[in-house]
């Protein structure tokens, strides 16, 4: 019954086409792996030093004011702003690590410690890579990760992608926006900088160029714990000197954000293990780099899809040559078994 056309041969031909597809994938123009991006040289950021933080929440209040966000309540009576986590209307929050009797500040056992939660402004942000409509963008000069609600479609892929859980969506709104820290970029034209750093009484939150902040962070790590040292406040890279004397903390010897995901523009120092204060371990290669390497290896210049489409068209043309889907000519050969 398989006289005029040998289905087996045709099947093999199909396989050849498929093999060609596979080969095309294998020897596809070796798209160079997308390297993890580094911070721009003039990148702006913050340095948060948990040992200096006194938990006054001035930064939380100032952030709300600067971004015109309403208070959020987690208590039965809505008395004052008590968000439990950052949200689409709370861009900055001081959380508290607590352990045992909570006697000593910055002690891991039987202690407590404060940690600021806000956008880290990654050198290679996952949210920017994830956003399908360029609503999340990274400024080439300042490196600030910016959000544009006019472009946003509200797919929340940025929310899912961010390893710090920073972009947040307004689920309670019929046409919600994403909310996240943008380093008060809307206030720079008035000569202001990040409100959280502006008001911080202890300089626990310090604003400046990330390069300067990193040097400052490393200086602090080298200090003898408990020794008196000078600590700048406000804006490290300009503005009046507001530095003061205080005691050096017992730091964990790591600047969080130095290498995580290729580095972040917001850096953190802590006396308590970073994972315990909610800063996840992250490898030096950004997930965005992995994702875009895959994306561009597969679709770079549409090379592979075109090659595959060619092979598929060739195969389909042979097999659909008699109007393959016509209802009536059987479309193909006998199916007798």
């Amino acid at each position: 019954m398989r006289a005029d056309e040998n289905p087996r041969r045709n099947f093999l031909k199909g396989c050849v086409a498929a093999g060609g597809v596979a080969a095309a994938s294998a020897v596809a123009p070796p798209v160079a792996a997308r390297e993890t991006r580094q911070r721009p040289p003039e990148a702006l950021g913050l340095l948060f030093d948990a040992t200096l933080c006194v938990g006054c929440k001035a930064c939380v209040a100032a952030c709300k004011q600067a971004n015109e966000n309403p208070a959020e309540f987690s208590t039965v009576d809505p008395l004052w702003d008590t968000p439990l986590d950052t949200s689409a209307r709370t861009y900055n929050l001081i959380k508290m690590y607590r352990h045992g009797t909570m006697e000593t500040k910055d002690a891991e056992t039987n202690g407590y410690a404060f940690m600021k939660t806000s956008c880290m402004h990654c050198a290679d942000p996952s949210c920017v890579s994830a956003c399908p409509v360029s609503a999340m963008t990274k400024d080439a000069a300042t490196g600030i990760v910016e959000y544009n609600p006019e472009a946003c479609i509200g797919c929340r892929y940025c929310v899912a992608a961010c390893p710090f859980g920073i972009p947040k969506y307004q689920y309670d709104s019929a046409y919600g926006k994403i909310g996240k820290c943008e380093l008060c970029r809307h206030r720079t034209k008035d000569g202001h900088y990040s409100a959280c750093a502006e008001v911080c009484p202890t300089g626990a939150t310090l604003y400046g160029k990330t390069a300067d902040l990193l040097a400052e962070a490393k200086r602090r790590l080298a200090l003898k714990p408990g020794s008196i040292a000078r600590f700048p406040r406000g804006n490290l890279s300009g503005g009046p000197d507001q530095s003061y004397e205080a005691y050096a903390g017992t730091y964990k010897q790591h600047v969080y954000g130095d290498t995580e995901y290729g580095g972040t523009q917001v850096l953190k120092l802590s006396a308590v293990d970073f994972e315990k204060v909610g800063m996840p371990y992250l490898p030096p290669e950004a997930a965005a780099a992995h994702s875009e390497t895959l994306q561009h290896t597969l679709y770079g210049g549409l090379a592979m899809p075109v090659v595959v489409l060619g092979a598929l068209t060739w195969a389909a043309r042979r097999n659909v040559h008699r109007g393959g889907d016509s209802n009536g000519d059987g479309g193909s050969k006998e199916g007798e078994k």
């Binding site: 006194v54 938990g55 987690s74 008590t82 968000p83 439990l84 986590d85 929050l93 001081i94 959380k95 508290m96 690590y97 607590r98 909570m102 500040k105 407590y112 404060f114 940690m115 315990k276 204060v277 909610g278």
Partner: peptide, 13 residues
Amino acid sequence: NIEPPLGYPRIVE
């Protein structure tokens, strides 16, 4: 801070 402010959000809520 004699008493850590218990009203503050935990690291994990």
